[in-house]
């Protein structure tokens, strides 16, 4: 009962913010009904996907203070699980989804157990290393297509195929991802009020104090990592059906891991809205930059420059990200 109440209770959020969120949500719901470009549509789908990645990252990274820079490996596990199962055995997407999530969580335990013995920068670096090792393995593993990657043959399915999630029109993907997004968002609203979230914030503040309060630090981190990686793994499964053409570089690259972490940091670590705000800024930026500069070879590095600038902005101006900035301006107004 308490769980259900926490999930749908937003009473601690400011009224004006909730109204704004409601309007934006309504816009998302109706967006496909208005005339729109396929570019805008795919940008919004990306926004939903990366919001979920960042929400997942935010559990362990924002609430728990464990900066993970290897989230893409779990995206890869989800995507490859679904792709392999659909291509080889025609398995329905909805069966590949729990299996992909389960594998991502199992892998999170395998690497989380040693990784969470490390602190601070060492943890971040080790998470990068783990992710790159897994990518290298996938690059040479024939069963998952090695460096050729995998392609789901769309001709085998007649769109719209809701069982295998194969559509020729993006609007189906849009609504499915929007549903994922809403479910993820409500889950985080429950999570942030849970015992585990309080334990994590205590760990982030001081691990020795957390232990003295009866918190099993290692186990709390591993449980949260499982939550984070199931978010990323689930969207990874979706990614396979949406993109259909899976390669290690696009699914497991370091740039994706960094982008995920950066979104949560920019938006505001350890807050409900932060990851969404971060994704809402960075995804359109990334899409438009690619659109404008895509052909202009040699200038591709510009996104890295922008990311670096964002990191400087966060560390210098407001460690709590944009959400922290909003909070500060808000409290100044009322004060």
């Amino acid at each position: 009962m308490e769980i259900l109440r926490n999930t749908f209770d937003f009473s601690d959020c400011p009224r004006s913010g909730l109204v704004l969120a409601g309007i934006v949500g309504l816009f998302f719901l109706c967006f496909p009904l208005f005339p729109h470009s396929s570019f805008a549509m795919s940008t919004l789908i990306q926004f939903f996907m990366f919001s979920l990645f960042a929400m997942g990252w935010n559990t362990i990274g924002g609430y728990g203070g464990q900066v993970d820079l290897g989230m893409a490996q779990f995206l890869g596990i989800g995507a490859y699980t679904t792709a392999v199962m659909i291509i080889r055995w025609n398995t329905p997407f909805w069966i590949t989804l729990p299996i992909g999530v389960l594998l991502a969580v199992l892998w999170s335990f395998v690497i989380g157990y040693p990784l969470f013995r490390l602190k601070g920068h060492y943890f971040a670096i080790a998470s990068i290393a783990a992710s790159l090792v897994l990518k290298d393995i996938f690059d040479v593993w024939d069963f998952v297509g090695a460096s050729r990657g995998l392609e789901i043959p769309t001709t085998r399915f007649s769109s719209p195929d809701f069982l295998h999630l194969i559509f020729t029109q993006d609007v189906y993907y849009y609504y499915i991802m929007f549903a994922f997004f809403l479910i993820g968002f409500l889950f985080i609203n429950h999570f942030r009020k849970s015992r585990l979230a309080f334990q994590l914030r205590s760990i982030k503040s001081n691990e020795e104090v957390a232990r003295s309060l009866g918190i099993n630090v290692q186990w709390a981190k591993m449980k949260t990592y499982a939550i984070a990686t199931s978010f990323v793994g689930a969207v990874g499964c979706f990614h396979a059906c949406y993109i259909k053409n899976i390669e290690t570089e696009d699914t497991m690259g370091l740039d994706i891991s960094i982008l995920i972490a950066l979104m949560a940091m920019l938006g505001g670590m350890g807050s409900l809205w932060g990851p969404i705000v971060g994704a809402g800024i960075l995804i359109p930026l990334k899409s438009y930059l690619k659109e404008w500069l895509g052909a202009t070879a040699g200038l591709v590095g510009i996104d890295l420059v922008i990311y670096a600038a964002i990191i400087m902005f966060i560390s210098a101006l407001e460690p709590r990200g944009i959400w922290g900035l909003v909070g500060r301006l808000g409290s100044r107004k009322t004060a």
Binding site: F198, K204, S205, V209, A210, R320
Partner: peptide, 15 residues
């Protein structure tokens, strides 16, 4: 006692 986190007094005690 190093209280560096974002927990307020009541939240600290809640932990």
């Amino acid at each position: 006692y190093v209280a560096s986190g974002d927990l307020n007094v009541k939240e600290n005690i809640m932990v």
